[in-house]
Simulated assay, not measured.
Amino acid sequence: MKAFFALVALAAGAAAQTASFLIPQPGATIAPGSTVTVQVHQDESTSDDVQLGIAIGLATCFSGTCANYDPAQDGMGTILYSGPFNPQFNSSDPEAGLQESFTLTFPGSTGPSVLSIAQMQAVGVNKIPTFNVVDVVIEMSD
């Protein structure tokens, strides 16, 4: 029983340390072919965590809606960035917490789309690997 509670505590701690989008916000409109600065926020950790990297992808929802689109099952589409993730505090925006900005060029497709992050990190004293996927629905339009 102790092992069960330890696993639940570890899972809760890992889930609380996920990355999310500061910019763009849900429903934002981005012009196809444009270069946009994307800001990724990282929740502060109460335990030791090591960022292993992230990927940022863009998938067009061809059905006209992204309501049932799940990047963890349906794919991330076009990968706009993959590599290191090293979020830091920004002294000009301390309320935003840990964050990192990425300048990305968005492809030429139009319509509702899902911008997603796949994040890999090692959490806690034992460096338990965790994998998180989060997304935001945006509109690709001129």
Rank of each mutant, 00 (worst) to 15 (best):
F85C: 01
D93I: 10
V114M: 03
D70N: 07
S47R: 14
Y69M: 10
S109Y: 11
G77C: 04
T18F: 01
T65R: 06
T110W: 01
A55Y: 00
D49W: 05
L80T: 08
G77P: 06
T35W: 07
P24N: 06
N86L: 08
T105A: 06
D43I: 02
C66S: 02
S20I: 00
P24T: 01
G75R: 10
N90T: 12
T35V: 15
I117C: 06
T60H: 07
S34G: 08
M76C: 08
D93R: 14
C61F: 02
P112Y: 05
S113T: 10
G27H: 10
G64T: 13
E100T: 14
G27D: 07
A31E: 14
S34T: 13
A11H: 04
F89D: 13
F62V: 11
S101T: 07
Q88I: 02
G83Y: 06
C61H: 00
P26W: 06
S45M: 05
Q99H: 12
P87W: 05
V40S: 06
G97S: 13
T103S: 15
I23F: 11
A67F: 03
E44I: 08
S45T: 12
F89I: 15
P84M: 11
A67I: 07
D70I: 03
S20C: 01
Q99K: 11
S47Y: 10
Q25C: 00
N90I: 05
Y81N: 10
T103L: 14
L98K: 14
E100V: 10
S101Q: 09
N90Q: 14
A19C: 14
Q99Y: 04
G111Q: 02
S63Y: 02
G77W: 02
P71K: 08
G13Y: 03
G108L: 05
C66W: 01
